[in-house]
Design a protein around this nucleic acid. Structure first.
Lengths: 138, 138
DNA sequence: TTCGCTGCAAAAGTTTTGCATGCAG
DNA sequence: CTGCATGCAAAACTTTTGCAGCGAA
């Protein structure tokens, strides 16, 4: 694939994802946000660009529990440097980042033991965040 | 919800998932397999029953990388007893099961440190299995 | 017999594609 | 200028739903 052209639309999508860093956005939500910011764009362009951005590694696609559409989030450089993991709260959909040397070592050992290689960028845990746990057990 | 009736269709879907234990099947694939076994069924019934089965905990729903439909797999009792983890090979889509006491402990510690609770049934790692690694680096 | 399950068809929602036009390089 | 990206509309797919009729309990 040849390198992507820097079009207004592509930049607007990236900006939108950056401004909402930490959230998971659907293509439809991106359309809505950009419309509200008076940055008109076609939905198909969003889909096409998101596919490009995922392939380029600038954006991560993930599917949440029981939803039948994809969510996208920006991957910052920091994120690539400091190896860390993600947890998505199944109650409030919050995305938590956490680093854990211990877990990192355990995963490394598991890789060797089982003769596979994990894609560390794709490690996402699901569970309940502390906020939701407190709400449920006050 | 009242308990499910034991209909022919429900049993056929469960049998199909059991016969293909370890694989990830789409609703459409289940339809195809049952048709080939001369066990006619409606696609909407498959969707409805899969939703029931997931809610009952007999079946697990998961979304694979880049695909925009859901995959379903049978959850056996063994699987619930022996806590283990899953890895899906992004090359061949194989589903690997592995146990790892070390990883289990590391995750437990991470839970305490970060004040969240992980849903261990939903822990799925993505990566490359040994077969595909060998193919790529012979 | 009763009420939930099924199957069909239609609707709703998500994602891709064809094609004429626009615009980055 | 040239050719890739865009926008629109239509198509392709996945999933849900309404409703009449079937069948498990």
């Amino acid at each position: 694939m040849t390198s992507q052209r820097k079009t207004r639309q592509r930049q607007n999508i990236l900006d939108c994802l950056k401004e909402n860093y930490g959230k998971n956005l659907t293509p439809d939500e991106i359309l809505f946000i950009l419309k509200k910011q008076s940055k008109p764009i076609g939905l198909s362009t969003i889909y096409r660009q998101l596919n490009n951005l995922v392939e380029e590694g600038l954006v991560r696609r993930c599917s949440l529990e029981g939803q039948n559409c994809s969510y996208y989030q920006y991957v910052d450089e920091e994120c690539l440097d400091n190896e860390h993991y993600h947890m998505i709260c199944s109650s409030c959909s919050a995305l938590l980042h956490f680093q854990d040397e211990n877990l990192k070592k355990a995963l490394f050992k598991a890789e060797n033991k089982n003769h596979f290689i994990l894609n560390s960028q794709k490690i996402v845990f699901y569970g309940k965040c502390s906020k939701c746990l407190k709400k449920e057990n006050p």
